[in-house]
Lab assay of single mutants.
Amino acid sequence: SFQYVPVQLQGGAPWGFTLKGGLEHCEPLTVSKIEDGGKAALSQKMRTGDELVNINGTPLYGSRQEALILIKGSFRILKLIVRRRN
């Protein structure tokens, strides 16, 4: 089963996490790295392996390109929903 975790990061880029996968690579869009001391790490809500399913209220369909555009369009606040295996 899965758990959906809301994450809100503040203060602008860099957000402190790296993505891998996506439709382009025929795999889920997941968090591959969280930078020590970065905003994602400080939130204590994101983990490597989390799947990104929503950015700023926009549902994602797995495209890494789409996710990067939405993330780049976030100035002060980035709201994410990640899906994690229980």
Results as ranks from 00 to 15, higher is better:
residue 1 S to K: 14
residue 2 F to I: 07
residue 3 Q to Y: 13
residue 4 Y to V: 06
residue 6 P to Y: 13
residue 6 P to T: 15
residue 7 V to C: 09
residue 8 Q to P: 02
residue 9 L to S: 06
residue 9 L to Y: 04
residue 10 Q to A: 13
residue 10 Q to N: 14
residue 11 G to N: 04
residue 11 G to D: 05
residue 12 G to K: 08
residue 14 P to Y: 03
residue 14 P to T: 01
residue 18 T to R: 10
residue 18 T to Y: 10
residue 18 T to A: 12
residue 18 T to V: 09
residue 19 L to W: 01
residue 20 K to H: 10
residue 21 G to Y: 01
residue 23 L to D: 15
residue 24 E to F: 00
residue 24 E to Q: 08
residue 24 E to T: 08
residue 25 H to R: 14
residue 25 H to M: 14
residue 25 H to C: 15
residue 25 H to K: 13
residue 25 H to V: 13
residue 25 H to I: 13
residue 26 C to H: 15
residue 27 E to S: 10
residue 27 E to A: 13
residue 27 E to G: 08
residue 28 P to Y: 02
residue 28 P to S: 09
residue 28 P to M: 08
residue 29 L to K: 03
residue 30 T to N: 11
residue 32 S to G: 15
residue 32 S to P: 02
residue 32 S to M: 08
residue 34 I to P: 01
residue 34 I to F: 02
residue 36 D to C: 10
residue 37 G to L: 07
residue 40 A to Q: 07
residue 41 A to Y: 12
residue 41 A to W: 11
residue 44 Q to K: 12
residue 44 Q to N: 14
residue 45 K to E: 10
residue 46 M to Y: 01
residue 47 R to C: 13
residue 48 T to Y: 11
residue 49 G to E: 08
residue 49 G to C: 03
residue 49 G to F: 01
residue 51 E to Y: 00
residue 51 E to F: 00
residue 52 L to E: 04
residue 52 L to K: 03
residue 52 L to Q: 02
residue 55 I to P: 06
residue 55 I to Y: 00
residue 55 I to E: 00
residue 55 I to L: 03
residue 56 N to W: 04
residue 56 N to E: 03
residue 57 G to N: 11
residue 57 G to Y: 03
residue 57 G to R: 05
residue 58 T to C: 09
residue 59 P to V: 07
residue 60 L to C: 10
residue 60 L to T: 12
residue 61 Y to L: 15
residue 61 Y to F: 11
residue 61 Y to W: 10
residue 63 S to E: 07
residue 63 S to R: 09
residue 64 R to G: 07
residue 64 R to Q: 15
residue 64 R to P: 04
residue 65 Q to I: 07
residue 65 Q to G: 09
residue 66 E to T: 12
residue 66 E to K: 12
residue 66 E to Q: 14
residue 67 A to H: 04
residue 67 A to P: 00
residue 69 I to C: 13
residue 70 L to M: 12
residue 70 L to S: 06
residue 70 L to R: 11
residue 72 K to E: 13
residue 72 K to C: 07
residue 73 G to M: 10
residue 74 S to M: 01
residue 75 F to E: 15
residue 75 F to R: 15
residue 75 F to Y: 13
residue 76 R to C: 08
residue 77 I to T: 15
residue 78 L to C: 05
residue 78 L to E: 02
residue 79 K to Q: 12
residue 79 K to M: 07
residue 79 K to H: 14
residue 82 V to W: 06
residue 83 R to T: 05
residue 83 R to P: 05
residue 83 R to F: 00
residue 83 R to E: 04
residue 83 R to W: 05
residue 83 R to Q: 00
residue 84 R to Y: 14
residue 85 R to D: 11
residue 85 R to K: 13
